[in-house]
């Protein structure tokens, strides 16, 4: 049997990722990590949760192992499984076990996408025991102080099957992420893409308008990520309205009636 500890160089973030703090989220995360508390990042899609994790990984100088959760993710996918290699059965750690063994940050992105029976495996890691039972190995792994578990989810989902159970959510320190304030979002666009401040202002204004349509035709408004994408296309020479049409409008909805509204909002500022 062999375990597979994290090779730091593989997951370490060497260069400081660009991140604009919105409040004291970095301080809170550091305090939670120092106290071995798991962290829950709540917020709409594309508002900077994953970027925040990369930034904290760099800041704490710990590798971050990211798992994008999905319907078919099983507990074995997280913890590990036996594989047959040359006639031998070999144990291979899953990403969660690797993070625990190596004292890394394990980031379970969109945890509500995973089945509820899968998310239960993290329970004993999330309370003061900080233990990961690996049934197949008969091993009880104790997390080192450096290990940090972070999960993210989008509370805006309207699906009864995609809700975070109370027994799971009440183990976390929760950080609420929202879209950045307009001035800071402009700054992010300028620094991230190199567009002019004037263009960034227009894009942020447009994004703000689409966010006003949340629950009023749109499930969610344009995220910072979407307008960053639009800004990158514009910076590459694509006409602003065309860039928004492809990077924002079409990504937001397929409903022709809402699309018309979003297009008109776009045309009113660009």
């Amino acid at each position: 049997m062999s375990a597979n500890p994290v090779r730091f160089e593989e997951y370490a973030i060497r260069q400081e990722p660009y991140y604009e703090p919105a409040g004291n989220e970095t301080g809170i995360f550091e305090a939670a990590a120092d106290n071995g508390l798991p962290v829950l990042l709540k917020g709409p899609t594309g508002c900077g949760k994953t970027r925040f994790m990369e930034y904290m990984s760099w800041r704490l100088d710990r590798p971050v192992i990211t798992v994008s959760c999905h319907d078919d993710l099983s507990a074995s996918d997280l913890v590990g499984r036996y594989l047959i290699k040359g006639g031998e059965t070999v144990w291979v750690d899953g990403p969660l076990t690797r993070a625990v063994r190596s004292g890394a940050i394990c980031y379970l992105d969109e945890i509500v996408e995973a089945r509820k029976d899968t998310t239960v495996v993290i329970h004993s890691l999330c309370d003061d025991r900080r233990l990961l039972p690996i049934e197949k190995l008969g091993e009880l792994l104790e997390a080192p102080p450096e290990f940090c578990l972070t999960v993210s989810y989008n509370p805006g989902y309207q699906s009864v099957l995609k809700d975070l159970k109370q027994s799971t959510r009440q183990r976390f320190v929760a950080l609420d992420f929202s879209y950045p304030q307009p001035d800071r979002e402009v700054e992010i666009l300028v620094k991230e893409t190199g567009v002019s401040a004037e263009m960034a202002t227009m894009l942020v204004r447009f994004a703000g308008m689409t966010r006003n349509l949340k629950d009023n035709g749109l499930v969610e408004g344009a995220s910072t990520r979407l307008i960053v994408n639009a800004a990158k296309l514009i910076r590459h020479g694509i006409a602003p309205r065309q860039a928004c049409e492809t990077a924002v409008n079409q990504a937001l909805t397929d409903d022709e009636e809402i699309l018309k509204t979003v297009r008109e909002l776009c045309a009113s500022v660009l």
């Binding site: 308008m209 006003n212 349509l213 009023n216 809402i258 008109e264 909002l265």
Partner: peptide, 12 residues
């Protein structure tokens, strides 16, 4: 009407 109301909602 539906378009105009949504459009104005978008403006804020």
């Amino acid at each position: 009407e539906p378009f105009l109301e949504k459009y104005l909602t978008g403006l804020g």
